[in-house]
């Protein structure tokens, strides 16, 4: 590229990434701070981790959140994949525009509105049909799945549009019925998209405070709700320790996933090289 400007983009990148990562780094560093004043260094200590592991309120909430996130992610993947299939493969039908609108709007809908509307729906449903009785895990899962499925649909849809449709046609042509084509051909090919969709839905749910606050009931306090009530009262070293553990889990997962992806990619490259060599 241009010589004179060559420093500009790297500088922007460095500054941008510093902006993204310095706060996270500060969370990690001060989680090992002996002092209770989170931002004043008082020597190295891991006592906040011990305290965190003894805090049953946080642990219970974390376990609940993980369960909700897992159910939500599974539900969102099924529904989101159906939406993506309908929008990319089933051709035009009346009401298609409405479906595609309803499947993309949750991506940008402010959380307070989604949360409020969900709550009012559940209250009204209870009034009319007696279901759901009170609010809790079920209502949180339904609310989360509704906006998570939009994210899954976007991911799967983009994978399906990239996928050569003639692969599915070839399977039909060779005698497989449409349902079988989906499960034997399409599903294995789009599996990576489904996995990333699942992970995204899981994270979205694990991370959500606002919608969960509206749709939860007594006895279903999720991890973000606990964190929020603590953070509102000011900084707390325990929260730093929790953040560090979460960051460590994500970092390890990313490194492992990255390693496997890289290995697979290099194997693929080697195979391609070999195929070209064999042909010559």
């Amino acid at each position: 590229m241009n010589q004179k400007r060559s420093w500009f983009l790297p500088a922007c990148l460095i500054a941008g990434f510093a902006f993204l990562y310095v706060p996270i780094l500060s969370l990690v560093i001060f989680s090992f701070n002996a002092s209770k004043l989170v931002t004043v260094w008082g020597g190295f200590s891991a006592k906040w981790y011990a305290e965190l592991l003894g805090n049953s309120q946080i642990l219970d909430a974390a376990w609940l959140s993980v369960r909700i996130a897992a159910i939500n992610a599974s539900l969102a993947v099924v529904l989101g994949t159906m939406v993506a299939l309908v929008l990319t493969r089933l051709g035009p039908f009346r009401g298609r525009a409405l479906l595609s609108g309803m499947a993309t709007a949750p991506l940008v809908m402010p959380e307070v509105i989604t949360g409020l509307s969900m709550l009012l729906l559940f209250v009204s449903l209870e009034q009319w049909f007696g279901w759901p009785q009170g609010r809790g895990v079920t209502t949180i899962v339904i609310a989360h799945a509704t906006f998570s499925l939009a994210y899954v649909a976007v991911i799967v849809q983009s994978r399906l549009t990239q996928l050569d449709e003639s692969i599915e046609e070839a399977a039909l042509d060779l005698g497989a019925r449409p349902a079988k084509v989906f499960f034997v051909i399409t599903l294995p090919i789009i599996a990576p998209a489904l996995i990333s969709g699942w992970l995204l839905a899981f994270t979205l749910s694990l991370d959500d405070l606002v919608i969960a606050s509206f749709t939860s009931g007594p006895g279903s306090t999720t991890l973000p709700m606990v964190i929020f009530s603590k953070v509102r009262l000011g900084v707390s070293p325990e929260i730093n320790a929790l953040a560090t553990i979460l960051i460590a889990i994500v970092a390890i997962a990313v490194v492992v996933a990255g390693y496997f992806m890289k290995r697979q990619e290099s194997m693929r490259q080697r195979d391609i090289q070999r195929a070209i060599a064999a042909n010559q």
Binding site: S166, I167, E169, A170, A171, L172, D173, L174, A176, I189
Partner: peptide
């Protein structure tokens, strides 16, 4: 008669081999 019930087979331009 749907494609999966026809005694007709096709070789696709992109070959459409099942990658997996």
């Amino acid at each position: 008669i749907p494609p999966y019930n026809r005694p007709v087979n096709m070789m696709f331009q992109s070959y459409a081999l099942f990658p997996h």
